[in-house]
Amino acid sequence: MSESNPIADLQALEKEALAAVKSAQDRESLEAVRVMYLGRSEGRLSAILRGLPQVPEERRPEVGKSANSVKERVSNALEARQLELAAPSAESELDLTMPGRSRWRGGLHPITQAVDEIWHIFRDLGFARARGPEADTVWYNFEALNTPLDHPAADEQDTLYLVDSVLLRSHTSPVQMRTMEANEPPIRIIAPGWVYRRDTYDATHTPAFMQIEGLVIDEGITFVDFKATLAEFARRYWGPDTQVRFRPSYFPFTEPSAEVDVKRIITRPDGTQYETEWLEIMGSGMVDPNVIANAGYDPERYTGWAFGMGPGRIAMLKHGVQDLRTFFENDIRFLEQFAR
């Protein structure tokens, strides 16, 4: 055997090993290649390194370094080939039924979604959104709205008070007066917001809940406009087949007053249809002239109408939610169902 040239041996080994790596067609043969070239005891690289003591001392570092870099390159090639083999091939092993890589999905609260859906319809009908304080005065919550505190009508909204004449608004109607004071007709607004009642939590009551107020004030606004706009809203929200009924009622701040009921046509999955019961969706009416006068407008000149509805109740009806409290528990498994 001629004087060995370990550097040349290493180069040859690298070339050979890389070719063997490339031709390996499965994991077993690739593992055989690894053992043949890099195996600790039997591997050919190890064999060369075992011959290192025979190399002249001054060349040893050079050979060692070269051996290391060959080892590294071959290792890299092995690893790369292993990944190639592991990767699914176009025809046979690509499994697209494996789940994709997603990001967290969030969602709006169902009552916000109800408010938004209602708002978008009224926006299309020419309304803007207004707001007012949640803690307000007896004047704005009752007296300005033609509701004297010593009248039984004030009983129907059992009110939470903070101090003296300051209370938590029991309805969004104070926004009517505040909006009229800050603006001039024509006024067409809705006012979504929290309202408060002296109630305990049960399936249909919570001491705080969302309400949406609506108010229209202008010259020449009539009961016909009132009916037409709210019926239009109902048909856009619940569908064109929805029947709308206006039922006389009483609110101190409207006259005439009406409850609005809807009856929906629901199509079952099998295509058959059924009618729901009449569902009460809002209280409403023509704004009482006393309220218009309290805002500083001339009730002979200006007329208008107003409504108040509970998006929570509407969301319950729409989504089959049995208990109003579910909306405030905010269990994410509940909220996720609305993340659409």
Binding site: R123, G126, F127, A128, R129, A130, R131, T179, N183, E184, P185, P186, I187, R188, I189, D218, F223, V224, D225, K227, A228, T229, A231, E232, V244, R245, F246, R247, P248, P256, A258
Partner: peptide, 22 residues
């Protein structure tokens, strides 16, 4: 109440702008 028509008539635009906080 049911005997009143419910046809939408012309309306004037609102003088109130949508509240910027909303």
């Amino acid at each position: 109440f049911d005997n009143f028509p419910d046809t939408l008539g012309p309306q004037r635009a609102s003088s109130v702008a949508d509240h910027p906080l909303f």
